[in-house]
């Protein structure tokens, strides 16, 4: 039972060092401490008609690289929109006509904000609002519209009355591209 004082000191030192090493490993290699440590940021807002299941702290990516995080999401009762505040790393400047989309990582993955830079000379500053946005894709809505258009297509074939399939198709297209973007020019894809 009797253990030398120096042996105890040594082992406890090793023990604590191991603990710190493990914590460092967890923080750097396992956790997102490195990627979430963005440093100085500036905030911009963007309004969406539908944010889907976007959550605070979701990544903000441009060209697939994380450039910021979603800070918070609030509902604007005046025009029934969701206002998303995002924090972007100070190192990255984006033009004012930057396009904000809500994408899904994979088929069932988490949702994130994708920024696609425009061509404007003026860059976004703290507190600015991104004008061009595209909503999250709601899977159920897409499927139901797809089925509806299919159904009307078959209807059209049997009844030989055109018109309705076109309407359904354009509705689907509108939803995919985002209705808001049309008034501001061509969507960048």
């Amino acid at each position: 039972m009797s253990v030398d004082r120096t042996t105890i000191d040594l082992w406890v030192g090793v023990f604590v060092a191991l603990g710190f090493a493990a914590l460092l490993g967890l923080a750097m290699k396992v956790g997102n401490l490195t990627s979430s440590k963005i440093g100085a940021t500036y905030s911009v807002t963007a309004a969406f008609e539908n944010v889907g299941s976007l959550k605070p702290n979701a990544p903000v990516k441009s060209a697939g690289v994380v450039v910021g995080r979603v800070d918070n999401i609030v509902f604007n009762g005046a025009n029934y929109e969701a206002v998303v505040t995002i924090k972007i790393d100070k190192r990255y400047a984006f033009p004012t006509d930057t396009f904000a989309n809500i994408y899904t990582a994979g088929l069932l993955g988490e949702q994130y904000v994708g920024l696609e830079a425009g061509g404007d000379e003026v860059v976004l500053k703290n507190g600015d609002k991104i004008a061009k946005t595209q909503d999250a894709i709601v899977l159920e809505k897409m499927i139901s519209q797809f089925l509806f258009s299919k159904a009307s297509e078959t209807d059209a074939k049997s009844a030989t009355t055109p018109a309705s399939p076109v309407a359904a198709d354009s509705a689907l297209n509108n939803n995919l591209k985002g209705a808001k973007s049309t008034e501001l020019g061509d969507p960048p894809f």
């Binding site: 290699k29 396992v30 956790g31």
Partner: peptide, 19 residues
């Protein structure tokens, strides 16, 4: 293996809460 892990493990919410 590592990048998926890093993307989904949050330092504050997961590691600190575990501590």
């Amino acid at each position: 293996f590592w990048s998926q892990m890093q993307a989904n493990v949050d330092f504050r919410l997961d590691i600190v809460n575990g501590l």
